[in-house]
Computed example of a mutant assay.
Amino acid sequence: MSYMRSFMDDFEVSIPEISSVEIEKIEDNGFDISEYYLDYLNYSVLHNPLRKFPYFTACNIHGDLFKKINRDELFSGKGDKWKKDERIPKETQLGQELYGADKSDFDKGHLTKREDVQWATNRNKAIEAAESTFYFTNAMPQVDRLNRGVWRRIEDYILHHQTVENNIKINVFTGPVFFEDDPDFVTKVKDNIIQIPYVFWKVVYYKMNGALHRTGFITSQKHLLEKRRIVKPSVRAEAKPESDLFMTFKDAETYQVRVEFIEKTSGLSFQKANENFLGETPEELILSGVDVRSEDSLSIEKVSINITL
């Protein structure tokens, strides 16, 4: 079963909308955007055939039906099996030709987290859902420090310490920001220049006190990419001014933001809902598991209030 708008019973949550300008760009290049909305088990993906990465993934998480499954239980214990989705042209996706290329010092970062879809009434179905996250249409090139750092810990916090422990349902959207000045990967892939996105966002919808709420998170890997010489420094004149917002961010750290901030930078439109985070500027989340590193950092209680019943 793919992403369900009516998953939270009392509220429908629609997928984000891309702009009419973006749709026109896709159509001008001979693509039908509706053919790139791909359904998987417990999640769906809207893929960008021009950039060859997903616009976003849309995931339902059912805390009450979550199944704990070790990664080595997947694919009959034979290891991860990443593959391209045969429903869309292979040339519109980036697979091992990118991740196995020279200087590709980054992880295949799941957008929809493997564990997020590990829920079903039947354990075998939950395993099947987990295996369905290993499509390249659900992956982004992410530096390990980002993929395995605070970004991952906030994902774990949302899943395990809120959704599963409280047996609730939530909807999660995750994706990159496509800037015009995204830096070029230093290695050509099949003679093509590949721009590597460096900003990622996550929006969580949940119920609290009988109302629909949402909260947003954002992170960046620009300087890590440049420091490791994975990308060339960007020199494009047509850069979006919004991209300058991230020049002073600490790489691989996660920030809580209002969803309007994500809309402004990504060009996507999200369904309206209440927000408890009212700050006008991003606030850094400094977590170690579910503990705070320092008293000066955002407290875990402040994080949890935005994603708890």
Rank of each mutant, 00 (worst) to 15 (best):
I61K: 00
P282Q: 10
E91C: 13
K207P: 12
Q96R: 15
I88H: 10
I127G: 06
A101C: 09
P141L: 02
L287H: 07
D10I: 03
N70Y: 07
F11N: 02
T174W: 01
P176V: 01
S20A: 15
V177K: 04
W119D: 00
V292E: 14
S297Y: 10
K67Q: 15
R71C: 05
E253W: 04
K108E: 09
R87I: 06
K169L: 04
Q195A: 13
Y206A: 04
G267Q: 02
I307L: 15
K169S: 05
G95V: 05
R5L: 03
S294V: 08
I168W: 06
A273T: 02
S266Y: 00
R228T: 09
P241Y: 10
D184L: 15
V203C: 05
K190A: 14
K90W: 08
E226I: 09
I69L: 04
I230F: 12
W151M: 01
A129F: 07
M1G: 11
E128K: 06
V290F: 07
F185G: 07
E242R: 08
S269V: 03
P89A: 12
G279K: 10
S6Y: 15
K250W: 06
F53Q: 02
R258F: 06
P233L: 09
D64Q: 02
D107G: 10
F66N: 01
I307R: 01
L38W: 04
A239D: 12
F261Y: 15
N166G: 10
A101Y: 09
I307G: 04
S34K: 05
G100E: 12
